[in-house]
Simulated assay, not measured.
Amino acid sequence: MRKKMKYVMGLSAAAIAAVILVAADHIDAPSTAGTTADIADFYAFEPSEGSDNTVFVVDLQSDVLPELAYGTFDEDVLVEINIDLDGDLVEDRVIQAIAKEGRMYFFGPVTPLQTGLNSEVYVDEVLGDVEISGASAIVETTSDGVSLFAGPRQDPFFFDFFQFNAVISPELESAPGGFLPPEEAADTFDGANTMSIIIEIPNSMLGTPTATNALGLTVYKTWVTTNKKQ
Rank of each mutant, 00 (worst) to 15 (best):
Glu171Leu: 13
Glu80Arg: 11
Ala40Pro: 00
Gly102Ala: 01
Gly191Phe: 03
Gly10Ser: 08
Gly134Cys: 02
Ser147Arg: 12
Leu68Pro: 00
Gly128Leu: 07
Asp144Thr: 10
Asp86Thr: 06
Asn227Ala: 06
Pro66Lys: 15
Ser31Lys: 14
Gln96Thr: 02
Phe149Glu: 10
Ala211Thr: 09
Leu21Trp: 13
Phe179His: 11
Glu184Ser: 02
Ala150Tyr: 06
Gln96Lys: 03
Thr218Pro: 03
Met205Cys: 06
Ala97Glu: 09
Leu113Ala: 15
Gly102Arg: 11
Met9Gln: 08
Thr218Lys: 14
Tyr7Pro: 03
Gly145Thr: 08
Ile16Lys: 11
Asp25Tyr: 10
Thr35Lys: 09
Ile16Cys: 09
Asn82Gly: 03
Ser147Val: 07
Ile132Asn: 01
Thr111Lys: 15
Lys228Asn: 01
Ala29Pro: 00
Arg153Lys: 14
Met5Leu: 12
Gly178Lys: 01
Tyr220Lys: 02
Ala44Cys: 15
Met205Ile: 12
Val22Asn: 14
Ile201Leu: 00
Pro152His: 04
Ile83Pro: 08
Arg103Lys: 15
Tyr43Ile: 11
Gly178Trp: 01
Ala192Phe: 13
Asp88Ala: 03
Phe73Trp: 06
Glu140Pro: 10
Ala97Leu: 07
Pro109Lys: 12
Asp84Gln: 07
Ile199His: 05
Asp160Gly: 09
Val110Gly: 00
Ala175Ile: 01
Ser196Glu: 02
Ala17Phe: 07
Ala33Lys: 14
Val19Phe: 11
Gln61Ala: 15
Glu120Gln: 13
Phe161Tyr: 14
Asp59Met: 07
Asp38Arg: 11
Glu200Gln: 04
Ala150Pro: 06
Val55Thr: 15
Asn53Glu: 15
Ala214Asn: 03
Ala192Ile: 00
Thr210Tyr: 06
Glu184His: 07
Ala23Asp: 13
Gly151Ala: 13
Glu131Trp: 00
Gly10Thr: 07
Ala40His: 08
Gly128Trp: 02
Ser169Gln: 00
Phe157Cys: 06
Phe179Cys: 05
Gly216Tyr: 10
Phe162Asp: 12
Pro209Ala: 10
Asp63Tyr: 14
Ala24Gly: 13
Gly207Tyr: 05
Pro176Tyr: 01
Asp86Arg: 06
Phe162Ala: 09
Pro170Glu: 01
Phe42Met: 11
Thr212His: 00
Leu85Arg: 08
Gly102Met: 03
Arg153Asn: 09
Asn227Ser: 12
Phe157Tyr: 12
Gly71Trp: 01
Asp63Ile: 12
Gly50Gln: 10
Met9Ile: 05
Ala192Cys: 04
Gln154Asp: 13
Pro30Ala: 07
Pro181Met: 02
Gly10Asn: 12
Thr194Leu: 01
Asp88Gln: 02
Tyr43Gln: 15
Glu101Thr: 14
Val126Cys: 05
Ser169Tyr: 00
